[in-house]
Write a protein that binds this DNA or RNA. Structure first.
Lengths: 246, 246
DNA sequence: TGAATGGTGATTGAATACAATTGCCGTCAC
DNA sequence: GTGACGGCAATTGTATTCAATCACCATTCA
């Protein structure tokens, strides 16, 4: 359910943000690790993943491994058959177009709502605590991403990208939209990781303008900018993929 | 992951379609049972569900119960905190509007795609086996639903409704859309169950025209009809809910 | 009197042990 | 030579047991 541990509400410990989370619960640890391996290609699609192998690899029992695999199955990263084991899912290039379509619809609505909510926050006296916290986290993500771009560490962008978009969802205040976006966030990151060298920098630069529109309560612009942002990602990905075919 | 057992590919055994699935794997059994209890109100939101209680209730061990709870958590029916247990989620009336919004976007695209695919099936010689099977299942669902309406057994409609819409998704041939729709299908059914007495009959009658548009390959109509269908559901639900408030 | 603190029961998290199912491989009959 | 049948190994599904954590409540001290 929760793709990313770390404390999004306490932005003070930015240093060890993503260094394997030594002390996290075993189940969460293996789940994150396996997902990471899948997203970044260490576990190619079709790979057979057995519980015992993972259990011995991480030095834990099979039970937490099972739960991790089940969670990953719900996220769409692995597929399981009863008594037959689990395999890494086929990378969703075939229905990437669908994924982007849904994402465009989801995120446009999210951005619009976030802008509305931002206007309401500032309109009626002081902003709520939760809104302010979410906004603060988002600011941190933006800074981190800019730093990553400046240092040319593009491998950090996939996760930051997800955190940005989930942050906007938080800002929208809609639990439903956040949950749905979180559902497809994993696969988005999967696609993004294969395309980050191509459009990563340009894509990231668009984020600030989206936030600016949201902050100013300009919901029409926010919706439009977000739609365009996702649309560009889609085009870029599809172009790259069809080019790769040839 | 798979909310509905039963053999959707073998429409011959319609009789015991949903009579608790005696011989199903325990995990699946409790998962379906708990979800059902939540949807139909036997387990009201906020209810605390402990693993031991469920284990003794169903006469099995805690492990399958755990997995069932985790799966239901992924579906959004229960919420869990580490070492603190699980509780039934608040019924998503607050973000019902979001849910319907996303659903409208998803299902419009699904219907459009299904119509496109139907035209392609008939255009190029014989339809594929899988398409034909999916279409056949859908026909069965439509008949079952009509029978349920005729016999005034409206309690059967929530599940049939989900099976109809998932059937259309299957017809669209997009695994991505199907998976996403399946994700929100549970909550949709949850809402639907509270509104079935109000709009169940009328809603069901609209299904045939949608299928007709899909069959004839009229993708514009299919999309429009589906969008309208979902929109009507939304309006009906929101009206009823706001009326209930007063 | 109020708040901090320690203990205790309940509940989940994880590990180990056992049962059930599957797929494969060798063998054998035809 | 080819097909089917039977046994075996590998793997998952389930049960049982133990450890870690948390919430609640009584107690105690300022």
């Amino acid at each position: 359910m929760e793709p990313f541990r770390g404390q999004p509400l306490q932005p003070e410990n930015h240093t060890k943000q993503r260094s394997a989370d030594e002390d996290a619960p075993p189940k969460q640890r293996v789940q994150d690790e396996i997902r990471r391996d899948i997203i970044f290609g260490a576990l190619p699609p079709g790979t057979r993943v057995t519980e015992t192998a993972l259990a011995t690899k991480y030095g834990i029992s099979r039970v937490p491994v099972r739960e991790a695999l089940r969670a990953l199955e719900a996220e769409g990263f692995v597929e399981s058959k009863p008594y037959a084991g689990s395999t890494v899912s086929k990378i969703p290039v075939d229905d990437a177009e669908d994924l982007f379509f849904v994402r465009e619809a989801l995120e446009s609505a999210t951005a619009r709502r976030a802008a509305h909510r931002a206007a309401a926050q500032f309109g009626s006296g002081a902003p709520s605590v939760e809104w302010w916290q979410a906004r603060k986290v988002l600011a941190g993500v933006l800074d981190e991403g800019d730093a990553a771009v400046a240092q040319n560490r593009l491998e950090l962008l996939p996760e930051l990208n997800i955190r940005f978009h989930l942050g906007v969802a938080e800002l929208s205040g809609s639990a439903s939209l956040t949950a749905l976006l979180r559902q497809i966030a994993g696969k988005i990151e999967w696609l993004y990781a294969t395309d980050v060298d191509n459009r990563g920098k340009e894509s990231w630069s668009e984020h600030r303008s989206i936030i600016a529109a949201i902050d100013s309560g300009n919901f029409a612009d926010a919706e439009k900018l977000m739609a365009n942002h996702v649309h560009q990602s889609k085009e870029g990905y599809l172009d790259r993929f069809s080019a790769e075919e040839a």
